[in-house]
Amino acid sequence: MSDPMRIRAQLKDGGVTEVRVLMAHIMETGLRKDASGATVPAHFIQSITATHGSKTVLNAQFGPAVSQNPVMNFSFKGGAKGDKVTVSWTDNKGAKRSDEATIA
């Protein structure tokens, strides 16, 4: 089960839309040991795609070194107030999550 992302998309001067994405994910490195000494298997978001309408505005790949509950910032041109920005991720265990925000 994964919790929703929090996506903030704001239109700034110069027609640039600034996007900040908070994702709920453990981002387990695969190096940590639990209380019993067993290695906790790696579990992390690998790929992220952000789209504005039909256009992909960002593709990102994460390794396990991205912090727990990842934060990501980027910005793109061509967005207008009221448009939707959709962000999706998949992790190394095949879990997925997709959420959208309206540009404000």
């Binding site: 919790d3 929703p4 992302m5 908070l22 709920a24 727990q68 509950n69 934060v71």
Partner: peptide
């Protein structure tokens, strides 16, 4: 400060 994962918990 800008980008506090606690916001995810606030939503929940």
């Amino acid at each position: 400060a800008d980008g506090n994962p606690a916001e995810l918990l606030e939503m929940r």
